[in-house]
Protein backbone atom coordinates (compact mmCIF):
# COMPACT_ATOMS: atom_id res chain seq x y z
CA UNK A 1 0.00 0.00 0.00
CA UNK A 2 2.74 2.40 1.07
CA UNK A 3 4.77 1.42 -1.99
CA UNK A 4 1.81 2.18 -4.20
CA UNK A 5 1.44 5.68 -2.73
CA UNK A 6 5.15 6.45 -3.21
CA UNK A 7 4.94 5.13 -6.77
CA UNK A 8 1.97 7.38 -7.52
CA UNK A 9 3.68 10.37 -5.90
CA UNK A 10 6.78 9.70 -7.98
CA UNK A 11 4.66 9.56 -11.15
CA UNK A 12 2.62 12.65 -10.40
CA UNK A 13 5.07 14.63 -8.22
CA UNK A 14 6.25 16.83 -11.07
CA UNK A 15 2.67 17.50 -12.15
CA UNK A 16 1.63 18.48 -8.62
CA UNK A 17 4.59 20.89 -8.42
CA UNK A 18 3.56 22.36 -11.78
CA UNK A 19 -0.01 22.78 -10.51
CA UNK A 20 1.25 24.63 -7.41
CA UNK A 21 3.46 26.81 -9.62
CA UNK A 22 0.50 27.80 -11.81
CA UNK A 23 -1.71 28.46 -8.79
CA UNK A 24 0.97 30.69 -7.21
CA UNK A 25 1.42 32.48 -10.56
CA UNK A 26 -2.24 33.46 -10.51
CA UNK A 27 -2.13 34.54 -6.86
CA UNK A 28 1.00 36.68 -7.10
CA UNK A 29 0.36 37.43 -10.09
CA UNK A 30 3.31 36.17 -12.14
CA UNK A 31 2.74 36.87 -15.86
CA UNK A 32 5.08 34.19 -17.28
CA UNK A 33 3.51 31.51 -15.10
CA UNK A 34 0.00 32.55 -16.13
CA UNK A 35 0.98 32.46 -19.83
CA UNK A 36 2.49 28.98 -19.41
CA UNK A 37 -0.64 27.87 -17.57
CA UNK A 38 -2.82 29.11 -20.42
CA UNK A 39 -0.68 27.24 -22.95
CA UNK A 40 -0.93 24.11 -20.85
CA UNK A 41 -4.69 24.45 -20.69
CA UNK A 42 -4.87 24.76 -24.51
CA UNK A 43 -2.76 21.61 -25.04
CA UNK A 44 -4.67 19.83 -22.30
CA UNK A 45 -7.98 20.57 -24.05
CA UNK A 46 -6.61 19.27 -27.36
CA UNK A 47 -5.48 16.11 -25.61
CA UNK A 48 -8.71 15.70 -23.62
CA UNK A 49 -10.86 16.07 -26.74
CA UNK A 50 -9.14 13.26 -28.63
CA UNK A 51 -7.23 10.79 -26.47
CA UNK A 52 -10.09 9.36 -24.35
CA UNK A 53 -11.98 8.64 -27.59
CA UNK A 54 -8.88 7.03 -29.10
CA UNK A 55 -8.46 4.80 -26.06
CA UNK A 56 -12.11 3.71 -26.23
CA UNK A 57 -11.48 2.63 -29.84
CA UNK A 58 -8.21 0.97 -28.85
CA UNK A 59 -9.98 -0.97 -26.08
CA UNK A 60 -12.75 -2.13 -28.44
CA UNK A 61 -10.18 -3.02 -31.11
CA UNK A 62 -8.29 -5.03 -28.50
CA UNK A 63 -11.24 -7.24 -27.58
CA UNK A 64 -12.93 -7.54 -30.99
CA UNK A 65 -10.21 -7.83 -33.62
CA UNK A 66 -8.62 -11.30 -33.67
CA UNK A 67 -4.84 -11.46 -33.83
CA UNK A 68 -5.04 -13.78 -36.85
CA UNK A 69 -6.71 -11.04 -38.92
CA UNK A 70 -3.99 -8.49 -38.22
CA UNK A 71 -1.25 -11.05 -38.88
CA UNK A 72 -2.89 -12.03 -42.18
CA UNK A 73 -3.43 -8.46 -43.42
CA UNK A 74 -0.61 -6.45 -41.78
CA UNK A 75 1.88 -9.08 -40.62
CA UNK A 76 5.40 -9.86 -41.89
CA UNK A 77 4.05 -12.19 -44.61
CA UNK A 78 1.31 -9.82 -45.77
CA UNK A 79 2.91 -8.34 -48.89
CA UNK A 80 2.69 -4.87 -50.42
CA UNK A 81 -1.09 -4.51 -50.07
CA UNK A 82 -0.60 -4.29 -46.30
CA UNK A 83 1.13 -0.92 -46.82
CA UNK A 84 -2.04 0.43 -48.40
CA UNK A 85 -4.13 -0.84 -45.45
CA UNK A 86 -2.00 0.78 -42.72
CA UNK A 87 -1.80 4.04 -44.65
CA UNK A 88 -5.59 4.14 -45.03
CA UNK A 89 -6.05 3.29 -41.34
CA UNK A 90 -3.73 6.15 -40.34
CA UNK A 91 -5.38 8.62 -42.72
CA UNK A 92 -8.75 8.16 -41.03
CA UNK A 93 -7.43 9.32 -37.68
CA UNK A 94 -6.99 12.65 -35.97
CA UNK A 95 -4.80 14.15 -33.29
CA UNK A 96 -1.17 14.87 -32.48
CA UNK A 97 1.54 12.27 -33.16
CA UNK A 98 1.61 11.09 -29.56
CA UNK A 99 -1.94 9.77 -30.07
CA UNK A 100 -0.53 7.33 -32.65
CA UNK A 101 1.93 5.63 -30.27
CA UNK A 102 -0.64 3.58 -28.30
CA UNK A 103 -2.31 2.50 -31.57
CA UNK A 104 1.08 1.44 -32.92
CA UNK A 105 1.68 -0.56 -29.73
CA UNK A 106 -1.68 -2.30 -30.16
CA UNK A 107 -1.07 -3.07 -33.85
CA UNK A 108 2.30 -4.55 -32.92
CA UNK A 109 0.79 -6.65 -30.14
CA UNK A 110 -1.76 -8.02 -32.60
CA UNK A 111 0.93 -9.12 -35.03
CA UNK A 112 1.52 -6.15 -37.36
CA UNK A 113 5.01 -6.19 -38.90
CA UNK A 114 7.76 -3.76 -37.81
CA UNK A 115 7.78 -2.15 -41.25
CA UNK A 116 4.04 -1.53 -41.17
CA UNK A 117 4.13 -0.14 -37.61
CA UNK A 118 6.56 2.57 -38.73
CA UNK A 119 4.70 3.19 -41.99
CA UNK A 120 1.61 3.69 -39.83
CA UNK A 121 3.44 6.34 -37.76
CA UNK A 122 4.65 8.07 -40.93
CA UNK A 123 1.21 8.15 -42.53
CA UNK A 124 -0.34 9.33 -39.25
CA UNK A 125 2.07 12.23 -38.98
CA UNK A 126 1.75 13.39 -42.60
CA UNK A 127 -1.51 12.21 -44.20
CA UNK A 128 -4.37 12.43 -41.66
CA UNK A 129 -7.47 13.54 -43.58
CA UNK A 130 -8.72 16.08 -40.97
CA UNK A 131 -5.28 17.71 -40.97
CA UNK A 132 -5.04 17.67 -44.79
CA UNK A 133 -8.38 19.46 -45.05
CA UNK A 134 -7.08 22.17 -42.75
CA UNK A 135 -3.79 22.40 -44.60
CA UNK A 136 -5.53 22.79 -47.98
CA UNK A 137 -7.65 25.59 -46.51
CA UNK A 138 -4.63 27.62 -45.41
CA UNK A 139 -1.79 26.67 -47.76
CA UNK A 140 -3.66 25.63 -50.88
CA UNK A 141 -4.31 22.39 -52.76
CA UNK A 142 -1.03 22.44 -54.69
CA UNK A 143 1.10 22.79 -51.56
CA UNK A 144 -0.77 20.03 -49.72
CA UNK A 145 -0.87 17.61 -52.66
CA UNK A 146 2.84 18.02 -53.37
CA UNK A 147 3.68 17.57 -49.70
CA UNK A 148 1.54 14.42 -49.48
CA UNK A 149 2.98 13.07 -52.73
CA UNK A 150 6.60 13.52 -51.59
CA UNK A 151 5.88 12.32 -48.05
CA UNK A 152 4.52 8.90 -49.06
CA UNK A 153 7.73 7.40 -50.52
CA UNK A 154 9.79 8.98 -47.73
CA UNK A 155 7.91 7.42 -44.81
CA UNK A 156 7.48 4.08 -46.62
CA UNK A 157 11.25 4.15 -47.14
CA UNK A 158 11.81 4.91 -43.45
CA UNK A 159 9.57 1.94 -42.59
CA UNK A 160 11.65 -0.39 -44.77
CA UNK A 161 14.92 1.03 -43.39
CA UNK A 162 13.92 0.64 -39.75
CA UNK A 163 12.56 -2.88 -40.34
CA UNK A 164 15.82 -3.81 -42.07
CA UNK A 165 17.87 -2.29 -39.24
CA UNK A 166 15.86 -4.16 -36.59
CA UNK A 167 15.59 -7.49 -38.49
CA UNK A 168 17.94 -9.49 -36.23
CA UNK A 169 17.35 -7.52 -33.05
CA UNK A 170 14.86 -8.32 -30.31
CA UNK A 171 12.74 -5.25 -30.96
CA UNK A 172 9.30 -4.90 -29.39
CA UNK A 173 6.81 -2.04 -29.06
CA UNK A 174 6.03 -1.83 -25.35
CA UNK A 175 2.87 -0.79 -23.59
CA UNK A 176 3.94 1.61 -20.82
CA UNK A 177 2.92 0.87 -17.23
Amino acid sequence: MKNKITATLKQYGFLILFGIFILLSYLLPFAAGIAIGKNFFMFFLEMAAILPLMFILIGLFEVWVPRENIIRHLGPEAGAMSILWVVLLAMLQAGPLYAAFPVAALLWKKGCSVRNVFIYLGAFSTLKIPMLAFEIGFLGLKFSLLRALFSLPVFVGIGYLLAWHLRNKSFAVKEPG
Binding site: F55, L60, P176
Partner: peptide, 15 residues
Protein backbone atom coordinates in the same frame (compact mmCIF):
# COMPACT_ATOMS: atom_id res chain seq x y z
CA UNK B 1 -13.67 -5.55 -20.80
CA UNK B 2 -12.48 -3.49 -23.77
CA UNK B 3 -13.33 -0.19 -22.08
CA UNK B 4 -11.49 -1.27 -18.95
CA UNK B 5 -8.40 -2.14 -21.00
CA UNK B 6 -8.56 1.17 -22.83
CA UNK B 7 -8.93 3.12 -19.58
CA UNK B 8 -6.01 1.27 -18.01
CA UNK B 9 -3.74 2.02 -20.99
CA UNK B 10 -4.81 5.67 -20.87
CA UNK B 11 -4.12 6.03 -17.14
CA UNK B 12 -0.74 4.34 -17.52
CA UNK B 13 0.47 6.86 -20.06
CA UNK B 14 -1.24 9.93 -18.55
CA UNK B 15 1.57 11.12 -16.21
Amino acid sequence: AGLKKGAKMFLNILP
